[in-house]
Design a protein around this nucleic acid. Structure first.
Lengths: 243, 243
DNA sequence: GAGCAAAATTGACGATCATCAACGACGCTC
DNA sequence: GAGCGTCGTTGATGATCGTCAATTTTGCTC
């Protein structure tokens, strides 16, 4: 996962090589050189913080491998997992652009690889490559629409349907297809985080999982989830749309 | 509210004159002339749509007067009010920048004035004024952080606390201060929309309002709300933060 | 002002949830 | 391996919520 693959200049972020999904591509030779010198690649263990809520911004990060959770905390110990970031995703760009401290924490949800680009380098890249700012804008808009979808689901779906939807999204990201048509996921998050993503308590998640087991639409074993028939699970939500 | 106030070129959007809050300022003379020719100002009655979900984008709108609600609908008739836009706010820029159809509807929540800038004009302005793109980016980031706040509250606050928080926000926007220290609001939204913003049903909103009345922290009469002691209402939420 | 449609309220009921508590499972450190 | 803390599950209980339904109020049109 953490293989290094140096390509020639002009390629997307020559180390990360996440291809299409990266914001760091289509640079000319000088920009590529700038990026190469201002970039630091680092591995993170499960649970390690890439940056912490409240910290001053020290540049921008780009996920190269693994999964990074974007989390918000409050003084009461509440924690909500707001987003999941995957290879190619740029994180920490908001506080960089607004010049404020980080408003969320970024935590490796498993062994991950994240590149860091320092402030001076991004500032120089942004100044010379207006397309980079535009890609940040597109990324921000994409995240905003994702947040709006979330808010809409929070207001219209039951907790069970919210969990089903989340499982379907995670199957799309992390799913492995088996020969008998079933699919498996290794959940990248704990039950508590699962609960926070849905807006309920972890005990409730336990009970909903129990009901999904009884109904035979999903089988849970630790963080491993097996879904015998993804289409049937999806039908639970789709029937709402057509009904 | 709908007064026209033509200033000289170089000022923020010469008609809208919403000042600091506008994205359409600091233009040179050619850009200002471009904006003047590509802009159309229009009044909307209560309930009228500025643009509708699913429609192709036909440019960008800028709120000049009144209040505009950003709403998402689904096929089941569910409606969720996602944001409120006030004078100075630019709306509809997301679908313009992503080249997609509108993913939300924008509806005048009362008599409002909204300017429209057509696609060609924005494209030209964006090409000549990189600062405009940056302001869109800042706006997008601001909305995203607002959405994250919302998601966090959805996951951690009770419905009553969510309503109290919403009331406090609306007091800040629409509140009138009285001599005896109390404050009044004319709610810009219906109870149904209030409910959708909180993620519950309108019957539940009715009951929560009833309890707020009993507790004497707020008095409701139609869309008019009087809050005897705003600090006491705010304390309901603050006690959670310090506790 | 009459008439109508939508909004808002209220009641009753069952379903769901949050909370507190207890317990087993798991991972980690020493 | 013992100890410890976190995570996950399960149970019991009271509170809250969603739904259906009936009714009143409001706002708008004609």
């Amino acid at each position: 996962m953490a293989q290094t693959c140096i390509r020639h200049a002009g390629q997307p972020c020559v180390v990360c090589h996440v291809g299409r999904r990266s914001d760091w591509q289509d640079f000319d030779q000088t920009a590529s050189a700038l990026l190469s010198s201002g970039r630091r690649r680092r591995e993170y263990g499960s649970g390690e913080l890439v940056f912490a809520q409240g910290e001053p911004n020290d540049g921008v990060h780009c996920v190269s491998g693994g999964t990074v959770g974007i989390r918000r905390l409050d003084d009461n110990g509440n924690s909500v997992l707001l987003e999941l970031a995957y290879p190619g995703d740029t994180i920490g760009y908001r506080s960089f652009l607004t010049g404020s401290e980080h408003k969320t924490s970024a935590e490796a949800l498993g062994p991950s690889v994240v590149c860091h680009i320092d402030r001076a380098t991004i500032a120089a890249l942004l100044a010379g490559n207006p397309a980079l700012g535009l890609r940040f804008l597109k990324r921000s808009i994409g995240e905003l629409e994702h947040a709006h979808d979330m808010m809409f689901r929070q207001a219209t779906l039951s907790n069970r349907h919210k969990l089903v939807h989340l499982l379907l999204v995670l199957v799309g990201r992390h799913g492995r297809r088996h020969s008998n048509g079933s699919q498996s996921i290794d959940l990248p998050v704990s039950r508590r985080d699962l609960a926070s993503m849905i807006g309920t308590r972890h005990e409730t998640i336990s009970r909903i999982i129990g009901r999904l087991e009884i109904d035979g639409v999903a089988h849970f074993s630790g963080r491993q989830v097996t879904i015998p028939n993804v289409a049937m699970l999806a039908a639970e939500i789709d029937c709402l749309i057509q009904a």
